[in-house]
Computed example of a mutant assay.
Amino acid sequence: MKKVLLTGVAGFIGAFLAKKLVETSSVQVVGIDNMNDYYDVRLKRSRLEMVAEADKRGVFEFIEGDISDSALINRVFEGGDIDAVVNLAAQAGVRYSIENPDAYIQSNIIGFYNILESCRRYPVDHLVYASSSSVYGSNDKVPYSVDDKTDDPVSLYAATKKSNELMASAYSSLYSIPATGLRFFTVYGPMGRPDMAYFKFAEKIVQDEPIQIYNMGDMWRDFTYVDDIVECLARIIDAPPVSKGGARRHRVYNIGNSSPVLLTSFVDMLERILIDEGVTDNRAVRELLPMQPGDVYRTFADVGNLEADFGFRPATSLEDGLREFARWYRAYRIATSGTCGGLS
């Protein structure tokens, strides 16, 4: 039975990927997460409980630890017979990188270096790692293609993700590590991160507080539903890149819905769905503000190479995805605060 090491397993994408793997694949999953308090740890524990409940074959193992701990990562690889690695552990958040840059260097640079070094010492069939649409910076050309330049990041977070791509490419070339980087575009869905815009907007609407929308509302985002992200990951894990000559190589894909939405229109839709699903009767109160440092005007994914290589492209509509989020969010609010809107 193959063994997959999944870092960031208590994170949003990591937990849903772990759930899919233990339910549908004949693999063992070793998950690592440091369970930090960047946001409510209870949500991370709930995700792990979801994975444990799905693990009917007893193939999931959880290790609490940090990928920046080189000794820990070395021990996991040394005794683990790891076949594939999916590195989703990272310090996330663009604005938080301005306030706390050290966290990004420790997790996104040193932590990823430790993963690469262990993949060198203990060769794996495939290293899959999370990059981000943030690497495109303030590019004017859309949709963003993986062939576009990515050497002008506008946040430290984006710079660390671009660094990951460069590091993986170098290790792939030097040590024949098959590696695939995935540039995620604004992932959303149930059990997501509370610091993400859609989650914060929902909270503000329920609490009848103003929603802050930057660049005076003129911003576009390519929202991608978490199930689509997980489906792509599951397909890619077992398909390491191989050149025509047989040598292993490094490649990068965008994973996005290829359908950017104006943020003010997004708020309108979220407001309507929260009301439809009985979350709240409140209307969104909008506060339009100037562009903030580290933000980009628009994200828009070209997924042509993903579709060509794997016959799949994200396609969940924003309407359907937000309804799934709203249904989960209603239960989450009741469980964590005892109320949801005017309901008890």
Score class of each variant (00 low, 15 high):
residue 2 K to A: 13
residue 5 L to S: 04
residue 5 L to Y: 00
residue 8 G to V: 07
residue 9 V to A: 13
residue 10 A to F: 01
residue 11 G to A: 01
residue 16 F to E: 13
residue 17 L to N: 01
residue 18 A to C: 06
residue 18 A to P: 07
residue 19 K to L: 10
residue 26 S to R: 15
residue 30 V to A: 13
residue 30 V to D: 09
residue 32 I to K: 12
residue 32 I to P: 06
residue 34 N to E: 12
residue 38 Y to I: 01
residue 39 Y to R: 00
residue 43 L to Y: 00
residue 49 E to C: 08
residue 51 V to F: 03
residue 52 A to T: 06
residue 55 D to R: 03
residue 56 K to I: 15
residue 57 R to S: 13
residue 59 V to G: 07
residue 59 V to W: 12
residue 65 G to P: 02
residue 67 I to G: 14
residue 67 I to R: 01
residue 68 S to M: 08
residue 69 D to A: 13
residue 70 S to F: 03
residue 72 L to I: 11
residue 78 E to Y: 15
residue 84 A to W: 05
residue 86 V to F: 04
residue 86 V to G: 05
residue 87 N to A: 11
residue 87 N to T: 12
residue 88 L to V: 06
residue 88 L to P: 04
residue 90 A to M: 03
residue 92 A to L: 04
residue 94 V to H: 06
residue 96 Y to R: 14
residue 98 I to Y: 14
residue 100 N to Q: 13
residue 102 D to I: 12
residue 106 Q to D: 08
residue 108 N to R: 08
residue 115 I to T: 09
residue 115 I to N: 05
residue 116 L to T: 05
residue 116 L to P: 11
residue 117 E to Q: 13
residue 117 E to M: 11
residue 118 S to R: 10
residue 118 S to W: 04
residue 122 Y to S: 10
residue 127 L to Q: 11
residue 132 S to C: 10
residue 134 S to W: 11
residue 135 V to H: 08
residue 137 G to W: 02
residue 137 G to I: 04
residue 140 D to V: 03
residue 143 P to K: 00
residue 147 D to A: 06
residue 147 D to W: 12
residue 149 K to W: 10
residue 149 K to T: 12
residue 151 D to Q: 01
residue 154 V to N: 04
residue 156 L to P: 09
residue 157 Y to V: 00
residue 158 A to W: 00
residue 159 A to V: 02
residue 159 A to D: 00
residue 163 S to G: 14
residue 164 N to L: 12
residue 165 E to L: 11
residue 168 A to R: 09
residue 171 Y to I: 12
residue 174 L to V: 15
residue 176 S to N: 14
residue 178 P to C: 15
residue 180 T to F: 11
residue 189 G to L: 13
residue 198 Y to D: 01
residue 200 K to T: 11
residue 210 P to L: 10
residue 216 M to D: 09
residue 216 M to P: 14
residue 222 D to F: 02
residue 227 D to P: 00
residue 229 I to G: 02
residue 230 V to P: 03
residue 232 C to E: 02
residue 233 L to T: 02
residue 234 A to D: 15
residue 235 R to N: 03
residue 235 R to Y: 09
residue 237 I to S: 02
residue 240 P to K: 10
residue 240 P to G: 06
residue 245 G to A: 04
residue 246 G to C: 06
residue 255 I to A: 14
residue 259 S to F: 03
residue 267 V to L: 07
residue 270 L to W: 01
residue 271 E to F: 00
residue 272 R to K: 07
residue 276 D to Q: 09
residue 277 E to Y: 03
residue 281 D to S: 05
residue 283 R to F: 05
residue 286 R to V: 10
residue 286 R to K: 11
residue 287 E to F: 04
residue 289 L to K: 13
residue 290 P to N: 13
residue 290 P to A: 02
residue 291 M to L: 07
residue 295 D to T: 04
residue 295 D to A: 14
residue 302 D to L: 02
residue 308 A to M: 04
residue 315 A to W: 15
residue 315 A to P: 05
residue 323 R to K: 09
residue 326 A to H: 03
residue 327 R to F: 05
residue 328 W to K: 09
residue 328 W to L: 01
residue 329 Y to H: 03
residue 329 Y to S: 00
residue 329 Y to W: 00
residue 330 R to A: 05
residue 330 R to S: 14
residue 331 A to H: 15
residue 334 I to H: 07
residue 334 I to F: 13
residue 339 T to P: 08
residue 339 T to K: 10
residue 340 C to R: 04
residue 341 G to E: 05
residue 342 G to S: 01
